[in-house]
Design a protein around this nucleic acid. Structure first.
Lengths: 212, 212
DNA sequence: CCTTTATTTAGACCAATCGTCTAATTAATT
DNA sequence: AATTAATTAGACGATTGGTCTAAATAAAGG
């Protein structure tokens, strides 16, 4: 499935031609993200990633210091990937602010359905696993949530100005509430193999921020 | 820490006296629960549980068919344990219905703090890990949530009758929303090493159910 | 009693898998 | 031609989950 039938050659790669051989690294990141969003860090073995990417072990340790360093790269890559995905919905000014958040929800629903509810959120997965993870991951994960939180808070602020959201609660608090609950909803969607938990949470969240 | 300095004797145990030697099994369950609430199923090795419990491998396979069967027993044990814990708060008729839910929240907060936010919810942990788990766990986990959900729904119904909660939303839906978000809050509390996420979610939930 | 049976523990063992590391190979550079 | 940089091959030791045989002890049956 994650086939990369490129027959790798040993030794230093040719220079100009082929636009660089950097895609081995890219492949490892892509396959690693798929594996970790599905099964988490602890249970995912390097061998499995390597097999799927058709990359020998020696290559892995050329591109990454060890599994921990690889994990950090994946967290950052996922954080960026997801922030972009989020922004595509949140910056759609053809929609009212709250509708932009709903657009993200719908986008995420489609994403989970596409993989039959096997893949969740990498950051949520690793947060859950934190006790079994290198302590160095903790701040990376926290910072990723902060980033996403700021983006939702920004839109909630706009919603307040547009009168869609009551002026009582602070956008920052509401945004934090959103991500706390959202990760729970993703978890539950994986368990139930259904997008119903995502809808259920989104509906409640919308009712909450609209009300006084 | 999980010391069980009982010097185990080989061979068939004495009959009446000592009230049975069933506590080897109990010890395995107790230590197993501690390990799995902390690090999940995949990352927890049998050897580690056995070491902490000072139980040799032969004993384990006497009491349980294999790790999967052991896991199922742990899910059931945790479900019961937690339902009792929950009921202690939810059936406290000296409190108004919503205050009983708040009492559970406070109880859970204390519980997480006690273990320095290392231990979370076994059911949530395993739900998150589901992609790496025996498929036979799925229904057990679902059923556990259903049980907890019914208990919260019951109290929310009482809150509605007492006029604490608006009559608009169905207690069942609100209860489902509660557990979806609660598991997210526990996850986040572990990551942040703080009970703030638990409070943040509980506050939002209370505001939601009170409002129309 | 003495033998047989039931229950429990001891821990060696195996195949599979973990993360790491050294050596070999190839191309670029000098 | 020699040296250096980049990449791959796969051996390696430790650990895992799971199985299995043997030993120890008490109960049960005559």
């Amino acid at each position: 499935m994650e086939s990369t039938p490129v027959k790798r050659k040993r030794g230093r790669p040719p220079k100009s031609q082929n636009a660089g051989y950097q895609d081995t690294r890219q492949t490892l990141i892509r396959v690693g993200l798929a594996a970790l969003t599905e099964k988490g860090y602890s249970y995912t073995g390097l061998d499995e990633i390597l097999r799927q990417a058709s990359v020998p072990k020696g290559s892995f340790y050329h591109y990454f210091e060890n599994k921990e360093a690889f994990g950090k790269v994946l967290i950052e890559a996922y954080g960026r990937f997801f922030a972009e995905k989020l922004e595509r919905s949140l910056s759609d000014t053809s929609l009212q602010p709250l509708a932009r958040i709903q657009a993200f929800v719908d986008d995420a629903k489609a994403g989970m359905q596409k993989f039959d509810y096997r893949r969740g959120c990498l950051i949520g997965n690793l947060g859950q696993e934190m006790a079994a993870l290198p302590e160095s991951f903790r701040n990376l994960l926290r910072e990723t949530f902060q980033d996403w939180e700021a983006r939702i808070a920004r839109v909630l602020g706009e919603a307040q100005q547009a009168g869609e959201v009551s002026g009582q609660a602070a956008p920052g608090s509401m945004a934090q509430f959103f991500w706390i609950g959202w990760e729970g909803a993703v978890l539950r969607a994986k368990l139930e193999k259904s997008s119903q938990p995502l809808d259920q949470f989104a509906e409640g969240f919308m009712a909450l921020v609209r009300s006084s």
